[in-house]
């Protein structure tokens, strides 16, 4: 356990600088978004009401009140989130390949550590998970602050205040990142975890058998996906929806656990017996 924690800490510190920079980018961009969008809304309001002499009520009817919704529809908000997603997706691969292609083949030292090699694998997995959930948590912290900034910028008559839950509820895209029920949260991120394990296993195949390994990795991935979807495929194929949705969901959770365990076991085996440096 202690070895594992040490490895997690080590892996996390390796990316920490980039990670905190990313957090800073999210913060700056989203705050800037709130300010810019508020200003442009107020400018529009001023222009329409005082220059075009549009009655205030009609302005509201046409433009609606200012709220965080308006900010979230802008690139200021989704841009940095997309960046973070991209970086994590990229780092899923880099977290392994940097050890082989770095200045000195670092993987050599990692594999020589007096601990189960599975710990190296799990530590990298944990790091990816921590990064992802860290972004989610950070975004949850930012919402109320952004709401406060909006309150400073826009007079009360012109804005509609929203709580964090309402903010998320009003955006389908946000609900995919932060679902509003805890069960969905576990399901979404559990599925994400399973996918990352699968990718890691494919990487392990490639690292063991190189070119041939790519094919093996793809083959393994295909098998795992088919295995995972078997319950659904069987029902669709037979045109017989025998299982209730809740039963299907439970079955899929079991299949997901099986596939994930298989991936971890396969990776552990490859790391122990077949890995090439």
């Amino acid at each position: 356990m202690k070895r594992y924690l040490k490895l997690v800490n080590f892996e996390f510190n390796r990316i920490a600088k980039v990670y905190f920079v990313l957090l800073a980018i999210v913060l700056v961009s989203q705050f800037a978004g709130v300010i810019v969008e508020s200003k442009s809304y107020l400018k529009e309001a001023n222009h329409m009401i005082y220059e075009e002499l549009m009655p205030k009520a009609e302005f509201f009817l046409q433009y609606g009140p200012m709220s965080l919704e308006r900010v979230f529809a802008s690139i200021w908000f989704f841009g940095p989130i997309a960046l973070c997603i991209g970086v994590v997706a990229f780092y899923i691969f880099l977290i392994w390949y940097r050890d082989w292609f770095g200045k000195n083949t670092f993987i050599y030292r990692l594999l020589m550590l007096p601990t189960a090699r599975l710990n190296v694998f799990l530590a990298k997995l944990t790091t990816i998970l921590l990064m992802t959930l860290g972004f989610v948590a950070f975004q949850l912290i930012l919402f109320p602050i952004e709401s406060t900034i909006l309150k400073w910028m826009v007079p009360k008559d012109f804005r509609m205040d929203m709580g964090t839950l309402e903010v998320i509820g009003s955006f389908r895209e946000l609900q995919m990142i932060i679902p509003t029920s805890f069960i969905e949260f576990i399901l979404y991120y559990g599925a994400g975890f399973a996918v990352v394990t699968l990718l890691f296993t494919a990487i392990m195949f490639e690292r063991c058998y190189r070119i041939k390994g790519i094919l093996l990795g793809i083959g393994y991935g295909f098998l795992a996906v088919v295995l995972f979807f078997t319950p659904i495929l069987i029902q669709e194929f037979l045109q017989n929806h025998y299982l209730y949705p809740s039963e299907l969901l439970l079955l899929e959770i079991v299949m997901g656990l099986i596939v994930t365990c298989c991936s971890i076991w396969t990776s552990s085996y490859l790391l122990k017996k077949k890995i090439r440096v």
């Binding site: 924690l5 997690v8 800490n9 996390f12 510190n13 920490a16 921590l130 959930l133 860290g134 989610v136 948590a137 950070f138 949850l140 912290i141 949260f185």
Partner: peptide, 15 residues
Amino acid sequence: YWKLTVVFIVLILTI
């Protein structure tokens, strides 16, 4: 372990 600890605690508390 402070960086890791901070990130972990913030994450658990917020979520």
